[in-house]
Design a protein around this nucleic acid. Structure first.
Lengths: 178, 178
DNA sequence: GGCATTTAGTTTGATGTCCAACTACTCCTG
DNA sequence: CAGGAGTAGTTGGACATCAAACTAAATGCC
């Protein structure tokens, strides 16, 4: 996109107009801001990942695999963790496989399941791209640590409310990694 | 999508794993949460708008027009305000025109410019869909008013930093509406 | 006035996501 | 152990967004 900045904040302006007409202006402004910031975060990280032949979705998938003990997860599990549609997992893994970053393997016990496994080049790419994303995120957020934590807490509240996870245990699943 | 909730927060788990390996975990968690919440907000509002034959993008365009004095704006102006690509404006206006909510008119003074004008049915739909969106947003955010304001302030800081607008004047452009 | 440059909008093509339908396999039940 | 129900993953189709190339009109400069 790369449009030059407006002399005013169009979302804040929309808020003012909205308030003149209706209730819920605060929610509207928040929602609209979310939309826009998502776009920003996505474009910044995608740009940082482009040299590696990755985008944010594929990067997340690789990182997820690298977090698992064996570097290997069933595709369905990946979809759950990344909170994306099974069809998207198929697409993502297709691309990663093309580039040689992962392989598809049969599950030893369950014939339905396909395991997705990080390759050695895949592991190397995770290492390097992780640094790139970190740099990009720092470039993006001169938000303070507290700001980030506050924002995350807020967003997490929303996600919990919408049923992303049962908030019984706040964070960690029973066992360690995988 | 509509997946049943996980027994833990996958993003919080990713944060833990990330922290074991690298810096920037807070930024990563915030970024990932943004991505997910955007998805939630979008799906909730789109669902609310479906009965009207609208989605969030088209709804925003209609609302923007309804805010303008004459109910009519050049397409380029719409793209600026909505912060979307010109090609997206074309697409959105195409759909709205099909449904009879807007018309395209020639600009009186500038032959290059196309004015997009709200029709009477369009105005009626804005009225009704605005209520629906408001209800949906309230359903979504049991976030307190303060939470919404805090969150918006944070996101706005980020947007300003990324060049969405020059932060000289904080909010309002020179003249009132339009 | 005439021609290069800029601006407005559309078109085309590449991506990416989701949904719905489908195949293949497993599990459960009688 | 046969058949129905559920689960894992893929495929095809719909849709949205953006980038780049293109057309048409306005602006500016000599």
């Amino acid at each position: 996109m790369a449009r030059r900045p407006l002399p005013f904040d169009p979302i804040a302006l929309a808020r003012v107009n909205w308030d003149e007409r209706s209730t819920g202006g605060a929610a509207m402004q928040f929602a609209t801001s979310i939309m826009r910031v998502q776009q920003i975060v996505l474009s910044v990280t995608d740009a940082a990942l482009k040299p590696f032949g990755l985008n944010f979705a594929r990067f997340e998938a690789l990182v997820l695999l690298s977090f698992s003990r064996t570097g290997s997860l069933p595709m369905g599990k990946m979809g759950e963790r990344l909170m994306i549609h099974p069809a998207s997992v198929t697409n993502i893994v297709d691309r990663l496989e093309e580039k040689g970053f992962v392989t598809r393997n049969a599950h030893p016990d369950d014939g339905r399941t396909t395991l997705c496994t990080l390759t050695q080049p895949g592991r190397a790419i995770v290492e390097r791209s992780l640094v790139a994303v970190n740099d990009a995120m720092f470039g993006l957020t001169e938000l303070s640590y507290d700001d980030l934590e506050t924002g995350t807490a807020l967003l997490t509240k929303l996600r919990a409310q919408h049923g992303d996870f049962t908030s019984e245990h706040d964070v960690i699943p029973s066992s360690g990694n995988s």
